[in-house]
Nucleic acid binder design. Sequence first.
DNA 1: CTTAACTTACTACGCTGTAAGTAACATTGT
DNA 2: ACAATGTTACTTACAGCGTAGTAAGTTAAG
Lengths: 183, 183
Amino acid sequence: MTTFGARGYNKGPLTEIADQVGMTHAGVLHHFGSKDQLLLEVLRYRDESDVKDLEGQHIPGGVDLFRHLVRTALLNARRAGLVQAYVVLSAESVTEGHPARDWFVERYRTLRREVGEAFRAVCAERGIDEPATVDRAAASILAVMDGLQVQWLLDPEQVDLAESSAFAIEAIVAQVLDPREAL
Amino acid sequence: MTTFGARGYNKGPLTEIADQVGMTHAGVLHHFGSKDQLLLEVLRYRDESDVKDLEGQHIPGGVDLFRHLVRTALLNARRAGLVQAYVVLSAESVTEGHPARDWFVERYRTLRREVGEAFRAVCAERGIDEPATVDRAAASILAVMDGLQVQWLLDPEQVDLAESSAFAIEAIVAQVLDPREAL
DNA sequence: CTTAACTTACTACGCTGTAAGTAACATTGT
DNA sequence: ACAATGTTACTTACAGCGTAGTAAGTTAAG
């Protein structure tokens, strides 16, 4: 994660990764078979340990999911390395034949579904019949979080990741629950 | 742009670029000196020709800038290659020692400033005293456009770039002009 | 006569993946 | 109890490719 995050998958050599665990690059290949496979295992492992972190604690739904996303943005501002890994790898994954492409496609589908469901729950709770904008809003919330991360990594002095994320999420949620035309 | 977009800067070889213009890779280096320099020239050239496109036409300000951004998202849905180049290169640029890093830092600063000014113009026009959220909103609008592009490139069937962008921009503008708390 | 626009040929490096060897440990048969 | 036989976790060494950059030569135009 450290190497792929700092230098990207393509430019992140196995030798650097091997050094970090006190091994030669051939040793790493002994365990993972190929560099592609290592990347997928790293991503899978992150997912697993994220789930473990939430064990016992309920995975929030409804309005709590949005609060959770805001807290995540706040947390992310303290772990640039991990954020950078996701930013770099997700963008790289859109290129031809990238080994993590399918993983990111699936990941975004899952996240959009979860955020979409949270929207539907909130709408139901407040007696709003489900607006057509739910799917767009779900994608937008994930998008704004990702996009802010890029700007923040490039220019941390100028961009406040947590504040901007919170602002944008609030804006989008408000627009779903009670749409207005400003333009 | 085609090669760097499709394969990224790191994995985009000079030979492929040279082939596209019917030349050897040494011919390309004759003109640009190094691969780094070529990338910077490509980016500079894109900027220049964007300015040329707008020549005569006024660069929109105030509320028209937001409409222009929505139209841009619509236009972008028809040019995946260019979009992919920006997505891949901007994310790659956050890595250590990337040749385009400074360029992207500067680019986002400029864009945030322009969007921020548009916000201030609209606020002045409508007699709203400038809210503290302008800067966050400016970053958020750029962020949501970028982030949606990633999701759209990965899964064009599932994500409607134009609609989602329009929705999110509207949401953010509305929240600046007339803030509400939804959470 | 010079300069520009190349090409060919080469160097040199970085990288992934493979093959063969080694040391430690586990398992099994007697 | 102990040898024989894997098996695991590596290392060293190397093959082999892709690639950026360089140097020298070629052709055409000014």
